[in-house]
Amino acid sequence: MEVDKGKGEAEETRKVAEADRDTVTLKSSDGKLFEVSKEAAARLSTVLAGMIAGGSIDDNGTDLKQIGSEALENVVDYCNKHANSIPSAALISSSISFNTAPFKEPEEWERKFVDRLSHDALFDLVEAANFLGMERLLDVTCHKISEMMKGKSPDQIREVFNIKNDYTKEELEEIRQELAWAFYDD
């Protein structure tokens, strides 16, 4: 009986602790659970910030039916890594430069983070970042995809992304003429 009572108390304590714990549990479309720092989730994702503020976070795992476990694992991994990284001086100062850079360049760790992803995982992560309103992660993943296009001819880009050319020869020629101005900087 003594033991049972102790167990009950422990259960109570656990419940109280969960109410104001500093992580949230997210559930992927295939039912896997992931824990992520509440602070990082709220800071990096407008959607999660809204759910945390609105109290719609489920302690048993908030359902994210749009996101598969592989993509969600990457999202959570990104949030945790982000929480531990210190922004570089370049990132802080870029906002005051004369020729304002439209995007902040990815940090070294962010580059490594997306470089290790497979083609499929990268595209799943772009959509997950978009779904969760994660502006910075969207920046980093889109930057990676644009890097895969840079300096390549249309033929080469089609090959990288497996895009099927559904134009006729005549149509291609017509577009090429329309876009004559766009070939000067080659």
């Binding site: 249309p154 880009i157 089609r158 050319n165 559904d166 134009y167 876009l179």
Partner: peptide, 8 residues
């Protein structure tokens, strides 16, 4: 703009 050439 050159991505116009990829596909429809």
């Amino acid at each position: 703009a050159r991505t116009s050439l990829l596909s429809r």
